[in-house]
Computed example of a mutant assay.
Amino acid sequence: MNLIASILNWKRCNIATLLVLTILVVLNFYGVYTNKFYFTKPDNYIFPLLSLVHFLYLYVIWFKITEDELPDPKMRNLEYALYAVMVVYLFKIYDSAMIIGSISDYQEHVIPSTFLPIGVLILVLYCLLFLLSLLSFWHRKRHIGVYNFENFNDNLNMWQ
């Protein structure tokens, strides 16, 4: 883990997560079967809306580490919301794998040549996003601290 942490420190992890998340938001509107973008389907907007939680978490991590602040209950609640969003990431990994696996079902149909490369790219990016999210949790625990609110008021000295 220390080797991964030395290669992907908290800044690089946040930037990589931001990049992967942005690419996936754009690719969420892409139809791999038709090689077109669909902006009129309402269900294509679910992932971009849920990714706002992840974008906000990345900002909070960046702010807390650079300002050397302690974790607070709002950050904890945001991280818990991100745990729920990660369940959606797992579903998207499963869904992408099922789409790639369905190529043999549509042999009689015209499938665009970009089906397999883009499908594999989407699957890899979702897996990478899940792993980067876990790494960002580890960086949060290491650089910001654990969520210990039982004696939070005892350890808080406002005059320092």
Results as ranks from 00 to 15, higher is better:
residue 78 L to S: 01
residue 6 S to A: 11
residue 44 N to K: 15
residue 129 L to G: 10
residue 146 V to S: 06
residue 74 K to T: 02
residue 68 D to W: 09
residue 3 L to R: 15
residue 156 L to C: 09
residue 57 Y to T: 00
residue 103 I to P: 07
residue 94 Y to F: 15
residue 87 V to R: 03
residue 131 L to P: 08
residue 32 V to T: 06
residue 158 M to W: 14
residue 116 L to S: 03
residue 43 D to H: 12
residue 160 Q to L: 13
residue 108 E to V: 10
residue 25 V to S: 09
residue 135 L to N: 09
residue 154 D to H: 15
residue 103 I to A: 07
residue 97 A to W: 10
residue 102 S to V: 14
residue 109 H to I: 03
residue 70 L to D: 02
residue 29 F to C: 02
residue 44 N to S: 14
residue 115 F to I: 06
residue 2 N to G: 10
residue 28 N to I: 04
residue 48 P to W: 02
residue 140 R to H: 04
residue 32 V to P: 09
residue 13 C to Q: 04
residue 68 D to A: 14
residue 25 V to P: 04
residue 9 N to Q: 11
residue 17 T to A: 12
residue 138 W to E: 09
residue 132 L to S: 00
residue 139 H to E: 09
residue 151 N to T: 12
residue 74 K to Y: 00
residue 123 L to F: 10
residue 31 G to N: 15
residue 94 Y to L: 14
residue 47 F to G: 10
residue 43 D to L: 08
residue 83 Y to C: 02
residue 78 L to C: 04
residue 110 V to G: 03
residue 69 E to I: 07
residue 77 N to F: 05
residue 14 N to V: 15
residue 145 G to Q: 05
residue 113 S to H: 05
residue 18 L to W: 03
residue 138 W to N: 06
residue 85 V to F: 05
residue 108 E to A: 14
residue 13 C to G: 11
residue 111 I to L: 10
residue 97 A to F: 06
residue 125 L to F: 06
residue 142 R to K: 15
residue 114 T to F: 01
residue 88 V to R: 03
residue 126 Y to A: 06
residue 94 Y to D: 03
residue 153 N to P: 04
residue 51 S to L: 10
residue 138 W to G: 05
residue 103 I to K: 08
residue 103 I to C: 08
residue 60 V to W: 08
residue 24 L to E: 08
residue 116 L to M: 15
residue 73 P to M: 00
residue 11 K to F: 00
residue 98 M to D: 13
residue 151 N to S: 14
residue 140 R to I: 12
residue 22 T to N: 02
residue 3 L to K: 14
residue 26 V to S: 13
residue 83 Y to L: 14
residue 143 H to C: 03
residue 97 A to N: 00
residue 93 I to A: 04
residue 11 K to H: 11
residue 4 I to G: 08
residue 62 W to S: 05
residue 56 L to K: 13
residue 57 Y to P: 05
residue 58 L to N: 05
residue 32 V to C: 06
residue 19 L to M: 12
residue 8 L to C: 05
residue 53 V to Y: 08
residue 108 E to L: 13
residue 21 L to A: 01
residue 154 D to V: 03
residue 96 S to W: 08
residue 149 F to D: 08
residue 74 K to H: 09
residue 101 G to L: 05
residue 70 L to R: 02
residue 150 E to H: 09
residue 64 K to L: 11
residue 16 A to H: 01
residue 103 I to N: 04
residue 19 L to R: 12
residue 66 T to K: 11
residue 156 L to K: 12
residue 117 P to A: 13
residue 160 Q to A: 05
residue 4 I to S: 12
residue 100 I to L: 15
residue 37 F to R: 04
residue 66 T to V: 04
residue 26 V to D: 00
residue 74 K to G: 02
residue 70 L to Y: 06
residue 156 L to V: 09
residue 20 V to D: 02
residue 92 K to C: 10
residue 29 F to R: 10
residue 152 F to C: 00
residue 8 L to Y: 13
residue 53 V to R: 02
residue 11 K to E: 11
residue 115 F to N: 02
residue 76 R to C: 00
residue 71 P to V: 01
residue 82 L to F: 13
residue 31 G to F: 04
residue 63 F to I: 11
residue 49 L to C: 13
residue 79 E to H: 01
residue 9 N to F: 09
residue 39 F to C: 05
